[in-house]
Write a protein that binds this DNA or RNA. Structure first.
Lengths: 109, 109
DNA sequence: CTCGAAGTTCGATGCAATTCGAACTGTACG
DNA sequence: CGTACAGTTCGAATTGCATCGAACTTCGAG
């Protein structure tokens, strides 16, 4: 069921990581787990303002995992996503900090 | 003829910039001008190892310009591309440095 | 065991990106 | 002026991406 490959840090590919982060939904997801640490996927969807179906979110999370940006841990029926900050920093120092700390354009409620 | 919009730094959109950099060809282009400074487009195509038609390169350069990553200057019949380093740094400090300084995977000749 | 919650997978669909060649515009140079 | 060079634009073909609903698995709670 879970044959998603989460690559080792040595196998990270910059274009793939950038592509994973280039989608606004995925960027919001990454920002959320960057700030809140390991988070339950359901909460991420709610709190990160992602209006999409479960299957679509699952798809996006897969992209992030296969690029090496996040890991997923399963506990019971729930899944928890976490940013692979150390691995990312080891391969691309400063990249995630720059992206996470970037000024977020004001979003009107 | 040249109605490509090069956005002001204040209008930069992170997802768009990341998407522009996510393509290996465009990433190689950016890296080249980052190292060599303002460069003639023809040279960039040759030296950056881009095996593509002129029209395709023109397309990629447009993506980079519209995202705000590079500027183009026309001198006579030739065009010269330059990285908008200051503008990029002002909006996303550390981002371009991280990307430019990233270890490039060895490419076998 | 049964039910609901949590996720994944599977088509299908619609949209966007990449690529090319051909035709065009404009510059430089004999 | 005519030729070659530099680059853009325009379809057209191919491919990939985002999205959804439906069906399925798995876990936890009764």
């Amino acid at each position: 069921m879970d044959d998603v490959i989460e690559p080792a840090a040595a196998d990270f590919q910059l274009p793939r990581i950038l592509a994973a982060l280039a989608d606004p939904h995925r960027l919001a997801t990454v920002r959320y787990v960057a700030v809140h640490g390991e988070s339950w996927c359901g909460l991420v969807m709610q709190e990160a303002g992602l209006a999409m179906s479960k299957s679509t979110f699952s798809h996006h999370l897969r992209i992030l995992r296969e690029a090496g940006v996040v890991t997923k841990r399963i506990s019971g029926a729930k899944g928890y996503a976490q940013l692979r900050k150390e691995d990312l920093d080891s391969r691309f120092p400063g990249l995630m900090d720059a992206i996470i700390d970037a000024e977020v354009p004001a979003r009107r409620a």
